[in-house]
Design a protein around this nucleic acid. Sequence first.
RNA 1: CGGGAUGUAGCUCAGCUUGGCUAGAGCGCCUGGUUUGGGACCAGGAAGUCGCAGGUUCGAAUCCUGUCAUCCCGACCA
Length: 582
Amino acid sequence: MRWSQTLIPTMKEIPSDAEVPSHQLMLRAGLIRQLMAGAYTYLPLGYRALRKAEAIVRHEMDQAGAVELFMPALQPIDLFEKTGRKSAFGNVLINFTVQRGDRKVHLALGPTHEEVVTDLMSRLISSYRQLPITVYQIQTKFRNEERPRFGVLRTSEFLMKDAYSFASSLEQLDTAYQKMYNAYVRIFARCGLPVLPVEAESGPIGGDASHEFMIPAANGEDSVVRSTTGAYAANLERAETGRKAPTIETAANAAAMQKVLTPNATSIEAVAKFLKVSPTQLVKTLIYKADDKTVAVLIRGDHEANENKIRRALKAKTVALADTAAIEAVTGAPTGFAGPVGIKCEIIADHDVPLITNAVTGANEADHHLTGVNVGRDYQLATTYDLRNAQAGDPCPRSDGTLEIVHGIEVGHVFKLGTKYSVSLGAEFADEKEQRHPIIMGCYGIGVNRIIAGLAETSHDENGLIWPLSIAPYEVLVIPLNVTEASTMEVAEKFYAEFQAAGLDVLMDDRDARPGFKFKDADLIGIPLRVIIGGKGLKEGQVEVKWRTGTENVKVPVGDAIQTVIQMIAERKASDAAKVPQ
RNA sequence: CGGGAUGUAGCUCAGCUUGGCUAGAGCGCCUGGUUUGGGACCAGGAAGUCGCAGGUUCGAAUCCUGUCAUCCCGACCA
């Protein structure tokens, strides 16, 4: 492609609306333009990169034995009503009614395709002999994000590769899951993305039933916990603290319990400040409604409760903070003064709570707290649980390392669904004894746009983008320094034609602009290999070749240059491919 | 949905506090010329419903009210 004949609107200045690096660079390099919050046009350069990512995803899905199909984005709302996800998605699900003749039809724009694919397979699968099978598509998804942000990282319309596996046994599901997991590792490696697979909230099957693939990045929306030894990585929602259940006994130096006046001190900070003690000395007593039961959850003052962990510890379906009436019913006091001593409900505690000697807790009485509270003497615990979010410095649950917290961009997710959708949509198969069972499913998503945005976010320098060869919109950029010089253009045109003939993706900057201007744009759009033709070099019979990441220009005789460039690209491809795990 | 900020030319911004003639600059764009190895220079030129609506006023980019949009923080995120 000739630069003058395509549309690459580079910008010298940073658009004021863009804050994160990927957004700034993708705008400046002419990859995207915004239509509205959360909706972006992919300009020619951006679309080429997106399609390259798409091609890698498609190739690896095919290699993993998944079969491609294409489902409608437009979906009937009743499928979502059957699975309960109309209310689960709430406002995120874009849905509306349209008039068809004399009736109204209620439609949704697919935020994902579990319903559609399960409905489809329920009609197509009848026997265990047809299983297992994995299908996938690459398609635009729609979600009415409450707050689209970070440019292209979080949008209301995005390209997703979604795959769904259908199995007749847990063993088949495990195999399908592992194939997808391995394919994901290869996909991100081929895209040049340093992803971290982390354990994620896993839903009904439990165990290692869900992994997210995270790009470590300062602007990532997810918090990821990882061990310094590399033995463990998990989403903060999921991460174990690595703490063990302590022996529950009253400390030898337990002080007497005292009731103290703490007017209007209802928060941990206020109480700590008022009594001049560290928040680590306090016990937070959170009153939860677990299904229909009211429960007091004890967490150390400086820790954050994790509702998923609480729900699992209580074996409840749902947990939510209790309302004021329920709190007053068990504490006999207004909100903010709950404590374990004398409370009228079940108590569960985090591992770190009984370790606090002479704790400060609420007194279950307005404007009062207790000091010198000790487990075993003042309140009783049978056991303790992991109920809080992990923190930096916690021990690693799998090794002798410690945990640290990093931010990450979620670019992929693999998930063992189980039978949630097949049960609600009646997708069943008959086994060899003609017994009917719900099909066991898995789902596997990749945000294709996030591959591009993630690269822009993490692979750049002060001059612009740095694309890996596999995703770069063009592999080679030919720069004739002066397009008004016939001798320069003769060489440039020959190179351009020969590179194309050799199957390289080549862009030629044929604009009548000064060299410095072209170099700045070249750095900005980040094409991996640059061939510079003109000036003194050409008089000496040489052209210059430079990697975007390199510091040195390599001078090559004009006659050898075509072969040299073709070879450099081939070698880089080979060395990139060698880094991809089998 | 709660909090904060911003809307003036394609982009970055000034002008607004204290209302006053034809609304400015840099970059970009067009024409001509000189230039040509890290975002050139000279001369000329085009381009703006000052987000939108209403109000106050002799007079509004500027003051008031409403509204829309965008960005950031938080809540939310199968």
